[in-house]
Design a protein around this nucleic acid. Structure first.
Lengths: 181, 181
DNA sequence: TCTCCATACTCAACAAATAAGTACACAAAA
DNA sequence: TTTTGTGTACTTATTTGTTGAGTATGGAGA
């Protein structure tokens, strides 16, 4: 057995979402990502970085690739989701993010792929909301241990305000994924 | 003339703040940063990373160093601010941050060193607030161009909420740096 | 014909980040 | 007294991330 889990999987698993509908090549994924709507709004990837991530995903066994000749155009490397990749993707897709700073990019990426999946977005939003509440309680507790107006207190006020804005926004999200697309 | 500006200066200039009161060595700076109060609350630096940054600051001419024997303890490398470093530091310290994601860490770092500097914090807060307003107007404009409830609209709602929370927090900051300490 | 853009991926180089290592002093525990 | 642990102070190797630039070809338009 090779060492199963290496590093914690991050947003790169979102790329697998582009392979759910069928095999896809890197250039095409880059096209989708570079048009500034959809996921491209929250995740900007240089071409070379995208190819690096795809190589990594393949090394991790989440995708496989074959070289496909397209004369007279350059050959494409076409990627296909493996069952391991499919499993990893679904796990990623349905898990709330674990850190406040991941909400902006990674949570929104999940939401991007959950549009249309009936009810799943709602569930994710609920779970994320719960985690936000824990963050909030935690920060409030820590802020209470600082002298009011001190530097430490101010840093926690920042975090508290941020989490509160996220919670309010999650409610907006919920209202805009009521049950169907 | 060597090529003057290489990369845009970032939060590493904050380290110069520890040298304002006099020469200092890396280990000591790391001590300060690792105690979880003060700047250590918003900036976590591994030891090796800190030394790397100091090396970089020296290469950029912002600090100079001498090796200082401390028998029987290991020798220290003691860093001193150059006039170029002093200038760069003051420029950094008094400039608002240019991106929303820099508020949490870099703006708070500036505030850390501005405590006690009478009135300077107030000025920085005002300038940052103005920039926030520009971000806000910009995001609102972009949100208005998206269909209400669409994915793009939601992403801008996130940003809008975030900036609004920052603006509210800046007012809290202002009230806690009224004129003196 | 010459330039430009689209297709599709590759590569080298640099920058950032981490774990781990070094080497000695001192103090407490076994 | 031997060992273990902790503090001082910095170094190094390795991995990972990121960027810009390069390659090679075809076709559209000036």
């Amino acid at each position: 057995m090779s060492p199963m889990v290496r590093r914690p999987p991050g947003i790169e698993l979102a790329l697998l979402g582009f392979l759910r509908a069928g095999p896809q090549h890197g250039y095409q994924i880059h096209q989708i990502l570079s048009s500034h709507d959809g996921l491209g709004l929250v995740w900007h990837l240089k071409q070379s970085q995208l190819y690096a991530l795809l190589t990594k995903l393949e090394k991790d066994g989440y995708i496989t690739s074959v070289l496909q000749n397209q004369e007279p155009y350059p050959p494409r490397r076409v990627f296909t989701l493996t069952s391991s990749g499919s499993k990893a993707y679904l796990g990623w897709l349905t898990s709330p993010v674990a850190l406040p700073r991941l909400v902006r990019q990674e949570f929104l990426a999940k939401l991007y792929f959950l549009r249309g999946e009936n009810g799943s977005a709602e569930l994710l939003i609920t779970r994320q909301r719960e985690i936000c509440q824990r963050w909030l309680d935690d920060f409030k507790r820590q802020a209470a241990q600082c002298a009011r107006g001190s530097y430490g207190w101010l840093t926690f006020q920042y975090r508290i305000g941020h989490i509160e804005s996220i919670i309010a926004w999650l409610e907006i999200c919920r209202q805009n994924f009521p049950e169907s697309r």
